[in-house]
Design a protein around this nucleic acid. Sequence first.
RNA 1: GGGUUUGUAGCUCAGUUGGCUAGAGCGUGCGAUUCACAUUCGCAAGGCCGCAGGUUCGAGCCCUGCCAGACCCACCA
Length: 913
Amino acid sequence: MKLSKAYEPKEYEPGIYALWETSGAFAPTTALALANTERAGKGEPFSIVMPPPNANGNLHVGHAYMIPIEDILTRYYRMNGRDAIWIPGADHAGFETWVVFERTLEAEGKSRFDFSREQLYDMTWDFVEQNRGNMELQLRALGASCDWSRSVFTLDEKVVNTVYQTFKRLWDDKLIYRGERLVNYCTKHQTSFADIEVEYREEKTPLYYIKYGPFTLATTRPETKFGDTAVAIHPNDKRHQKYVGQTITVEGADGSFEVQVITDEMVDPKFGTGVVKITPAHSFDDWEVAQRHNLPMKVAIDREGRMTKAAGRFAGMPVLEARQAVIEALEEKGLLVKIDKHYKTRIGHCYKCGTIIEPLPMKQWFLKIQPLAQRAKKAIEDGRIKFIPAGKGNELIRYFNELRDWNISRQIPWGIPIPAFQNKNDPDDWIFDTRVDQEQIIINSKTYKRDDDTFDTWFSSGQWPFITTDYLTGGDLARFYPTSVMETGVDLLRQWVARMIMLGLYATDDVPFRDVFFHGLVLDEHGIKMSKSKGNVINPMDVIDEFGSDALRIGIVMNRSAGQAQAFSTASVVAGRNFCNKLWNIARFIEAKSEDGAESSAAPSLDEPSVFPDNLTKNFSSSASTSSSPHGAPEKNSSKVCSEKRSGEDGGESRAATCEPESPADHWILRQLDDARAQINQHIKNYRFAEAVDTIYHTVWDDVADWFIEASKVNSRSEFLHYVLDITLRLVHPFAPFVSETIWTALHDDDSLLISQPWPEKLSFDKKKTDEFDQIKELVSNVRLVTTQLPAGKYDLLHENDALIAETADLIKSLSGLKSVKQVKQGKGLRLATAGHAAWLDLSDELIYEHQERLETHLVEVRQEIAVLKKRLANPNYTKKAPAHLVEETKKQLDEKRALEARLMVELWVATT
RNA sequence: GGGUUUGUAGCUCAGUUGGCUAGAGCGUGCGAUUCACAUUCGCAAGGCCGCAGGUUCGAGCCCUGCCAGACCCACCA
């Protein structure tokens, strides 16, 4: 029985995930940490909170980058014995979900206004509940090793309770206030938006020049004229000074009205005519001006986007219609001077339905932000939060400085209701009360009516780290706050990360996380932003279906750096798939080897995938695993110690195998693995995931497969092969968890899981032996380089009693594809330019002659390098100022190059003689 | 208007505080190979590191200017 030739991810991934999940491996203080007392408590707890994906949606390709990163971190620190948790979540995605839900209502010919708030809330809840499972299944498909038992939905009771607690505290601290402000209002969705939720588009819109009392002014919105309460000029503008301070009468489209003439810096004398009409209720600029000058406000547009009574005979018209009608009326009256049809300006749109956002005055709940912002700013300046990439911290500091009060109300039912009630008889009397399920409450015989608004999603999301860890209530997860790292997209820097820092510091007196890693946008293959309208969206589930989850993980993490928007590359996913297959075949080879070496019952059984994973632990046999069974089976093939240290009471928790290296190849591969281990440690610590993947990729492929396994074909010990595989699997696991676990469970007949194994410790090896293998490698490369240029055929390698070559003759022969390696009295043929060892390729004179040109080229190159090095050393500034070790290094290089030159000259001399 | 950021091989991208011959994946060329893997193996070609200056013993990396792109923010009627 054999493993299938190629790794088939689909056959194994769901089963493997189920094994992890049912084994409890995702929980903090894992079996590993508990069982390994000497490892437990190593370092601080590690925690990461998942940015909750939309409960109602599907994961997109951005998640396919985010989840692997968070998973790599979690698996890595878990294997390192840290008390590690990754808390998943699901987002009710207030407005996003609301839009989708409202669309289904509309499809049924219904409107939100047909239902009460409670009904709408319940309907939406059911709607989300129906769809919620998908998202979580997709997270599993990506291999997310998060602790599902701790999953938090953004409308869970504990979320609401904490949000109310925070709101109450802010209220008591006088940081919450009710204010009339201009808000960005979508007349279709009937809700206001935060500034960052408005999508500005550059558009052509006519600029009308109209007569306005004694002035002519330019406006794009003549219909708002009914809301004008002033007209402004720049303080230094000489042209209209005589009117300043006066009240003038303006003839309009529907009768005349009076406005004051004021001066304000905001007016650009060079724009239009240098005169601006001020409409405080419908323009953000004008609102500001009105605040400064204490101007009255007239509302000309209502929440439906229609003209109010103030518009006289235009009342009830939609805005755009009114604009046209007003212009026609002005033209009739001779008040229209000209129209600039080429004028372009930026117009705000609802980012969901595209409706033009109407600035409207509205009573809203506001959070006084600056006290919170300044504290957050200081925390960043003090370096209490580390940003990756670092520049993002400075960006936040600037943002905090200019941040204005935050409108936290939304006019949609799908969200957390604002716990505030208004006295029916005194509109200014608001009280905090959490009985939001009641429309009105009576307190001290006064009737209070509920505010029907809900919180902005980011008000609750902003508290996510301390909510999910139950920090305020002191649950058992409280030890994980502040969380170790927040991993999220650059696009959420302001709307989410900034708010978590502000609210975290406010509510807990501590930063919500130590590090923030920002991932960039994943673009399509050509570097274009993915969008449904462009039809270039890549569905991660399709990619998994075709290439496997591990392949997607590797492919997407590879060649990517923090914060950068970068293209998705199918080629990289293919590389990832091939990598998994490579690892798989390494395991197959090692299995086959131990089969060869095993005499009797020791046959390993690598089962057909079709039976997998049900018979997972049964069908992959015992003796195939490292030579010592838990019951102490005798070791074979080696007098050296190969043992397995196990810990845990009833077996199966964790194991650390060791096996002494013997051959140069053994020592060498241990060094390579140890280097990889150390490098990955550094890379993970620095959040350099692409480099970490690169390291493991090349270690497995180049070192383990291409050199060590190749060498093992000549001479191998099953135990040591398994030992190498064991370490390799551990190193691979955080990056390609499925394939590594599949192999692991296949090789172990107990219940042990790779996910719970310890990360490799420092490996020891003999440097002399590793050097020997390096020399063998160099010789082999040299032979390959020469023979690949020659006609196909087998050649003989000659040496004059070289100990290493003699000892490893078979190995060299095999690796180089030689006919033989022979010891001779006198070397002849082509002398190879290999350091430290004299060896000749026994070639005919013609072949040597053909090789001559190559040699000459090589010699020229080497001589050029020598010249460069000599020049560098001849420079007194270099030898004086450069660090000593670099100068030494250069000298060493020069020596090496000269030696090489000498060898090449010998080769060439032989070739030409 | 302000800010951030990018420009490195045919393509997509790495290159950490300046320091060995600037790397990877894919692609390309030549060759090999039924015995772990064609999702294979070996070898190679391919780079004025956007342009021009500057600092330095030394610059892909630091500084200045320019060219080209991306993104974010902002109140121009």
